[in-house]
Design a protein around this nucleic acid. Structure first.
Lengths: 338, 338
DNA sequence: CTGAAAGCGCTTACAG
DNA sequence: CTGAAAGCGCTTACAG
């Protein structure tokens, strides 16, 4: 069942059917519209989008790029609930605007342009900011809108949705201070990572504001993973001077609690801890983990909308670099020293 | 840069270039192949897959169907790490075989056939068995291979990868028995759900084998969610007769531990618990949760391979309903009564 | 308000 | 081993 079949059956031209399908109602008489729609309904006609794409030079397909690194094991990447929330939210948003979602992992920069040419992809969303090295040259070549999250690149060609990393750690550090803590560790190997560096700055800002001296030895550069957290927790127990730890991932905070216990501390009695991301699992630990939350669906939705707007109008209305607010979610992992 | 451009530049026909692109080397002389490939390389020619699809009646696109229910809030669905592992593994597998992954949520049965016609999708993978009502009529119409997981449908037209649910609960119940437990609760509202019913059967089988009477009052039909688990845990505490609980989801097991504590029990001293799925978060709880593990990537990989095999050959080699093995992962949530 | 023609970039089926 | 012709299902640009 093709456009032509419908046209023949209705006794009109393909052009007329096409106009009806696209709702260009001012170009067709009401009577014809009705007749054509009845036939479409009856025969279950569905347009062939490959054909449309071929003549259109456009596809209504948006590419979601998963990972560029072969080296990085995909498993880690995938067990992250962040990713599924992102993909699901983006798909819903795209679908409701008549777009299709193609998910693709890539291993070379050339894979991206290949994907574009293969399917006339209308826009691209990178889920992770890992792509930054490839980004600049790619952006210069790319003729289609591109969205990314938490990137340090400030190119006006890039839709870049960030979250307020500095405020995140400002909030958790301030929360510790408000509960009487002054010896607060910051856990993350921030060097060379602009997101983590932003968070370190938030930590420092909170200390400064309260007149608490910043001590470099309280910055423990362990990776923000479960294992990194365990190592950090043990280290903290051995230092014997800290009452609180803030960090940049819930998994790491959980590791810190575990490591601190292994080192002989009670949590939260001897060590208060605050995580980051507010994952579901914060409520499953003991104590339940206080954490910094960002609205991930909101982030995904905003990126998708700006991308579609740019595709349709050729321009983004708002500044294309947007920083989203974060919040603290109180649970039980912080003890008051007052 | 199109086939024609390459052909002109090489001084050959489009047909020859097409043959080179598809590696039909026996139809082209070595010299011509080399010349054409050099030009392709130089110009960065990438075939337009919409055009290919149009003449081919095939697309190399596989549809992954996310959710059919508008009513079910998508959020729940998405924060499930199972989903991202599935999507990621399937995408990798498809990509390495030259296929493309289109993710799509649907709200009506007709959305599926529409997707097929829109893009000439070559195959479909349903992530969840929720679609069973729609399945039978759909399978009769559908001309393309379909894969699903954990479905009770035994249609030979369906590639159906299950896991050994009965064995899963047999293992956890047996493990309890081997540690001296005889008063063991089974938590899940299994009625009307063939997966959970299979698991209940495994529970009963383990009891039977050890000559422990099955007591209907030990089956607590709470939903296998965190909240359901909390309710079940409180109930167990109030019953004062049970020393162990097996269930069908890690989240539920974590809820049970929480509920039991709220009811005054110590975990695991007073109540041993075993979960199901072996999610990462099993290692983040206290006590760390013993659980039943299924190899999710393996499941996704197998479904994808069988689907591609069926697409290419028109037949699946193996029986299309496959049950995968499960295993128990020991941690700290079970105490020995000996 | 309606339609005939040309073309998007590829493949299939055939001829040589 | 190579190529010219027709066609996949749609849209664009134009004419009436």
């Amino acid at each position: 069942m093709t456009l032509k079949d419908v046209a023949d059956k209705a006794g009109v031209s393909m052009m007329t059917v096409s106009n009806v399908v696209h709702g260009k109602n001012n170009r067709v008489s009401a009577k014809t519209i009705e007749k054509v729609n009845a036939i479409i309904e009856e025969c279950g006609y569905v347009p062939n989008l490959s054909a449309r794409s071929l003549s259109n030079k456009t596809s209504n397909i948006i590419g979601i790029i998963l990972s560029i690194f072969e080296s990085k094991p995909t498993e880690n990447f995938l067990e992250n609930p962040y990713i599924s929330t992102m993909i699901g939210t983006i798909e819903q948003e795209l679908r409701s605007s008549g777009y299709y979602t193609m998910v693709r992992s890539i291993s070379h920069e050339s894979d991206i342009t290949q994907l574009l040419k293969n399917w006339n992809v209308d826009g691209i969303i990178f889920l992770y900011p890992d792509f930054e090295n490839y980004m600049e040259p790619f952006l210069n070549t790319a003729s289609i809108p591109v969205a990314i999250f938490d990137s340090s690149l400030a190119s006006p060609a890039l839709i870049n949705i960030c979250s307020d990393d500095q405020k995140g750690l400002y909030l958790s550090t301030k929360y510790m201070i408000n509960h009487g803590h002054t010896h607060i560790a910051f856990i993350a190997d921030y060097e060379g990572n602009h997101i983590l560096t932003g968070r370190l700055n938030g930590y420092r800002k909170a200390l400064d504001e309260s007149g608490i001296p910043f001590r470099p030895e309280y910055v423990l550069p362990y990776p923000p993973s479960y294992e990194g957290g365990i190592a950090a927790g043990k280290k903290i127990a051995s230092m014997n001077s800290l009452t609180a730890a803030v960090t940049t991932a819930d998994i790491c905070a959980i590791g810190i609690m575990e490591g601190a216990r292994l080192g002989g501390l009670r949590v939260p009695a001897d060590l208060s801890v605050i995580g980051y991301d507010n994952l579901n699992l914060c409520q499953y630990t003991m104590p339940k983990l206080t954490s910094i939350s960002q609205d991930i669906p909101q982030k995904a939705r905003l990126a998708t909308r700006l991308l579609l707007e740019k595709i349709c109008t050729g321009k983004t209305r708002t500044p294309c670099q947007i920083t989203m607010d974060v919040d603290i979610v109180e649970r039980q992992s912080v003890v008051s020293l007052f």
